[in-house]
């Protein structure tokens, strides 16, 4: 028996790389393709979202003359707002306006969504009616309520309520209250629809099981409905907060900031400084302050959502 020495492993033949492959390998085209495809979207987002924010930030750091950018003034425009009692008063009123509106709009929307979720005749008609304020423009809504609440000729008859004249627009507290109510009136449909959609995702079995366990309506709402709707409610809160902080048209048309400056909000200051007085730098500073409030509130809601999720 002869022992053969083991064969050496076959040596792989090194064939010359075809010319086409040699050219393709160093090409960056495949690696860049995804970026190229993303580019239009990035450009659109940059133009639509990032550029205006950067532009406003830049404006707020400059003196302006109508639409022309002049000297860099650093934080002077912010100091003019945050260093004055009028600026802080506007911020305070904006917070009252937003928090009070949220405190009314969200529970109200939740309640109405509950009612609309129950089997009832003409449910679709009610749903359509509930949506109506949402499709009315802010200008029309403001003019409509100005007419309704007018003490002289308004159909609500506020000129003589048990012998007392209620002039909503002449009293600072009543004017702010009316503004908040009208704001809630035009914004609750959006919240209601979102709440209704969330309610409809709650499995009926859960509610039936809670019935069997003897849970009452309040316990069922607290233990089942509310926890399952929490993410939606936070989204609603974020949407409404953004809407309320940035509201200009309604305030401008309804009270224009009066009487006695009682409804002068930061959003109205931003509008007036920018477009009525042409102080674009100062107006931009007001806008950036609003932006910061929106970010802070949004971040707080998101943190709450996450803590709910962790819990």
């Amino acid at each position: 028996m002869t022992v053969k020495s083991p064969e050496a492993p076959p040596v792989r033949e090194h064939r010359p790389v075809p010319a086409v492959q040699a050219r393709r390998r160093p090409s960056t085209r495949p690696r860049l393709l995804p970026y190229g495809l993303l580019l239009p979207a990035v450009v659109v987002v940059a133009v639509v979202s990032v550029f205006p924010i950067v532009f406003a930030l830049n404006l707020s750091l400059h003196e302006t003359r109508f639409t022309q950018l002049e000297d860099f003034v650093g934080l002077d425009n912010y100091a003019a707002i945050l260093g004055s009692s009028a600026g802080w008063a506007s911020i305070g009123r904006s917070l009252i306006y937003v928090v009070a509106s949220l405190a009314l709009a969200i529970p109200m929307s939740l309640g109405i969504a509950h009612l609309l979720n129950r089997p009832a005749r003409f449910r679709l008609v009610f749903r359509a009616l509930i949506l109506m304020p949402w499709v009315i423009s802010q200008t029309v809504a403001a003019l409509l309520w100005r007419w309704l609440l007018n003490a002289d000729y308004g159909p609500l008859g506020l000129g003589d309520v048990a012998g007392t004249r209620i002039d909503v627009f002449a009293d600072p507290v009543q004017a702010m209250a009316a503004l908040i109510l009208v704001n809630v009136w035009i914004s609750y449909p959006l919240a209601t629809i979102l709440c209704l959609a969330a309610l409809q995702t709650i499995p009926a079995e859960l509610e039936e099981a809670s019935d069997v366990d003897g849970a009452g309506p309040f316990t069922r709402f607290r233990r089942i409905t509310l926890p399952m709707m929490a993410p939606t409610l936070f989204v609603v809160a974020i949407l409404l907060t953004l809407l309320y902080f940035n509201m200009v048209t309604l305030v401008l048309t309804f009270t224009a900031g009066g009487p006695f400056g009682a409804t002068q909000l930061v959003s109205l200051d931003a509008f007036n400084e920018s477009f009525s007085f042409f102080n674009l730098g100062l107006g931009a500073a007001y806008s950036v302050i609003l932006f910061v409030f929106n970010i802070v509130f949004g971040a707080a809601y998101i943190k709450l959502i996450r803590s709910e999720g962790d819990g």
Binding site: A151, Y153, A170, P259
Partner: peptide
């Protein structure tokens, strides 16, 4: 009275035409 706090030029004119 306080009602003029809610009046701009258009409101004043409407009120004159309304006789209030």
């Amino acid at each position: 009275g306080d009602e003029v706090l809610n009046m701009a030029a258009d409101d004043v004119i409407q009120s004159v035409t309304a006789g209030t």
